[in-house]
Protein backbone atom coordinates (compact mmCIF):
# COMPACT_ATOMS: atom_id res chain seq x y z
CA UNK A 1 0.00 0.00 0.00
CA UNK A 2 1.42 3.37 -1.06
CA UNK A 3 0.65 5.57 1.95
CA UNK A 4 2.11 8.71 0.33
CA UNK A 5 -0.38 8.52 -2.50
CA UNK A 6 -3.19 7.97 0.00
CA UNK A 7 -2.15 11.17 1.79
CA UNK A 8 -2.21 13.03 -1.56
CA UNK A 9 -5.72 11.72 -2.27
CA UNK A 10 -6.84 12.73 1.22
CA UNK A 11 -5.54 16.29 0.73
CA UNK A 12 -7.48 16.56 -2.52
CA UNK A 13 -10.65 15.17 -0.94
CA UNK A 14 -10.48 18.00 1.62
CA UNK A 15 -9.94 20.59 -1.13
CA UNK A 16 -12.82 19.13 -3.14
CA UNK A 17 -15.18 19.22 -0.15
CA UNK A 18 -14.29 22.89 0.28
CA UNK A 19 -15.11 23.50 -3.40
CA UNK A 20 -18.39 21.57 -3.16
CA UNK A 21 -19.47 23.71 -0.20
CA UNK A 22 -18.92 26.78 -2.39
CA UNK A 23 -20.90 25.19 -5.24
CA UNK A 24 -23.88 24.50 -2.97
CA UNK A 25 -23.80 28.01 -1.53
CA UNK A 26 -23.43 29.56 -4.99
CA UNK A 27 -26.21 27.34 -6.47
CA UNK A 28 -24.04 26.18 -9.33
CA UNK A 29 -25.72 24.45 -12.29
CA UNK A 30 -25.95 20.65 -11.96
CA UNK A 31 -23.73 20.02 -15.02
CA UNK A 32 -20.83 21.92 -13.40
CA UNK A 33 -21.12 19.92 -10.16
CA UNK A 34 -21.53 16.61 -12.03
CA UNK A 35 -18.46 17.15 -14.25
CA UNK A 36 -16.45 18.31 -11.25
CA UNK A 37 -17.40 15.24 -9.20
CA UNK A 38 -16.92 12.91 -12.20
CA UNK A 39 -13.33 14.04 -12.81
CA UNK A 40 -12.64 13.80 -9.09
CA UNK A 41 -14.19 10.31 -8.81
CA UNK A 42 -12.20 8.96 -11.79
CA UNK A 43 -8.98 10.42 -10.35
CA UNK A 44 -9.67 8.98 -6.90
CA UNK A 45 -10.51 5.54 -8.32
CA UNK A 46 -7.30 5.39 -10.37
CA UNK A 47 -5.33 6.84 -7.46
CA UNK A 48 -6.65 4.15 -5.11
CA UNK A 49 -5.77 1.41 -7.60
CA UNK A 50 -2.26 2.82 -7.92
CA UNK A 51 -1.94 3.10 -4.14
CA UNK A 52 -2.91 -0.58 -3.82
CA UNK A 53 -0.26 -1.50 -6.40
CA UNK A 54 -2.82 -2.55 -9.03
CA UNK A 55 -1.68 -0.33 -11.91
CA UNK A 56 -4.14 -0.46 -14.81
CA UNK A 57 -2.77 -0.13 -18.37
CA UNK A 58 -2.07 3.55 -18.84
CA UNK A 59 -3.35 5.92 -21.57
CA UNK A 60 0.14 6.16 -23.18
CA UNK A 61 0.07 2.38 -23.59
CA UNK A 62 -3.37 2.56 -25.25
CA UNK A 63 -2.15 5.35 -27.52
CA UNK A 64 1.02 3.41 -28.41
CA UNK A 65 -1.04 0.30 -29.23
CA UNK A 66 -3.39 2.39 -31.35
CA UNK A 67 -0.54 4.03 -33.29
CA UNK A 68 1.07 0.61 -33.80
CA UNK A 69 -2.22 -0.84 -35.02
CA UNK A 70 -2.58 1.82 -37.71
CA UNK A 71 1.11 1.49 -38.64
CA UNK A 72 2.26 4.97 -37.61
CA UNK A 73 4.98 3.61 -35.31
CA UNK A 74 6.79 0.23 -35.30
Amino acid sequence: MNSYLLVVLFIFIILELRDLRGFIRGREPARVVIVNIAIMAISLAIGLLLAMGKRPTSPPQWIEQMLKAIGVVN
Partner: peptide, 17 residues
Protein backbone atom coordinates in the same frame (compact mmCIF):
# COMPACT_ATOMS: atom_id res chain seq x y z
CA UNK B 1 -14.33 25.66 -10.44
CA UNK B 2 -12.38 22.89 -12.20
CA UNK B 3 -8.87 23.53 -10.89
CA UNK B 4 -9.02 21.02 -7.99
CA UNK B 5 -10.30 17.96 -9.92
CA UNK B 6 -8.06 18.65 -12.93
CA UNK B 7 -5.04 19.07 -10.63
CA UNK B 8 -5.74 15.73 -8.94
CA UNK B 9 -6.23 14.08 -12.32
CA UNK B 10 -2.85 15.47 -13.47
CA UNK B 11 -1.11 14.15 -10.36
CA UNK B 12 -2.68 10.69 -10.67
CA UNK B 13 -1.95 10.60 -14.42
CA UNK B 14 1.66 11.68 -13.78
CA UNK B 15 2.12 8.65 -11.52
CA UNK B 16 0.10 6.32 -13.73
CA UNK B 17 1.60 7.34 -17.05
Amino acid sequence: KFVTPVALFCVVLAIWV
